[in-house]
């Protein structure tokens, strides 16, 4: 199915038609040589587009100042690998108006690298500034409350993104350290409703589920099985660490053991799964080295090969 055909297809067909890519990493600057030297170990490359530009704000003559160095690295990688975008700056859950300029920039990047899908986080980070020239940041992605009001806002925004960018859009489940009482829906109910109404896909971050289950005392398996798993296109796997008495999604080196334990079941349960992405903080690369990254990829590939549902 071509991109133009994909754009017009019903949601379920669009996700089912995506290429089954395999296993890879989320690019960070520590992986520059790794990607060059070990491209054969990667089935694609997940990238964070927003890290390759600086946003000067809507009023600037040139709003998105792209890093020539980053663009060159990614362009070189794109000669050998399919790129998949995982942005961090859309802030689709912010209560102020959707940043349509950011959507346009993502659309340009999708087109530039022919990404088969793109994703962002179901959270908010952007805050309104004190004047038209200021945009503030919460300095971390914060979860939205799972309320009907928020759902309505997000449905409209996801529809807009999907109209502007012709490939499937995935939203990633949140990690959160604070429980908000009296929410109108559970997280799986909210995600299911959002994907059902918009046709968007899910990027299921298995480590986020593990972090939330550890800190908030629920069963990660029950959470995962409460989701409409046919919406899951990509998985994130990662490791974490302790902070202030809680387990955090710090991407601290190798994949957490609990994630490995869950992964076969998750992979087998997601009929439209196309990719498993290992993400880690760049500060961990010196400790892991190339061999450490390759080891995580081999383990993930073993699960992918043995448990994935074959299309058709």
């Amino acid at each position: 199915m071509s991109v133009s055909e994909l754009h017009l297809a019903p949601a379920a067909e669009r996700l089912a038609a995506l290429p089954r890519l395999g296993v890879s990493v989320l690019y960070n600057p520590s992986l520059r040589e790794f990607v060059r030297d070990h491209a054969e170990a990667l089935d694609y490359l997940a990238i964070i587009p927003d890290r390759a530009w600086q946003d000067e704000g809507a009023a600037a003559p040139v709003r998105f100042v792209e890093s020539e160095g980053q663009v060159e690295i990614l362009s070189r990688a794109a000669e050998r690998l399919t790129l998949v975008g995982h942005s961090v700056g859309l802030s689709i859950g912010s209560a102020d108006p959707l940043d349509t300029g950011h959507v346009e920039q993502l659309a340009r990047w999708q087109e530039r690298f022919a990404m088969p899908w793109h994703s962002d986080h179901l959270s908010f980070i952007r805050l309104p500034g004190v004047d038209a020239h200021t945009e503030l940041s919460a300095s971390m992605a914060l979860a939205v409350p799972y309320d009907h009001e928020v759902l309505e806002m997000l449905v409209e925004r996801v529809d807009y993104v999907q109209q502007r960018i012709p490939v499937p859009f995935l939203l990633e489940n949140n990690v959160y350290y604070v429980d908000l009482p009296e929410q109108e829906m559970t997280e799986p109910e909210f995600l299911n409703e959002l994907t059902r109404r918009t046709g968007c896909g899910l990027l299921l971050d298995v480590h986020n589920v593990v972090v939330n289950a550890t800190n908030h005392g629920f069963d990660p398996r029950a959470f995962i099985h409460a989701l409409d798993l046919d919406r899951v296109v990509e998985l994130h796997i990662a490791g974490g660490s302790e902070l202030a008495g809680l387990y955090t999604d710090s991407h601290a080196g190798p994949v957490a053991e609990t994630v490995w334990e869950l992964l076969p079941e998750v992979v087998a349960g997601c009929p439209n799964l196309c990719a498993i992405t290992f993400e880690f903080h760049e500060g961990w690369y010196p400790a892991m080295g190339a061999e450490g990254v390759l080891r995580e990829l081999r383990t993930a590939r073993n699960v992918w090969d043995r448990h994935r549902v074959h299309a058709g």
Partner: peptide
């Protein structure tokens, strides 16, 4: 509720 939770210490960190 959030202000008194341990998780808010993580958020602050």
């Amino acid at each position: 509720s959030a202000a008194g939770q341990r998780g808010m210490r993580v958020n602050r960190s």
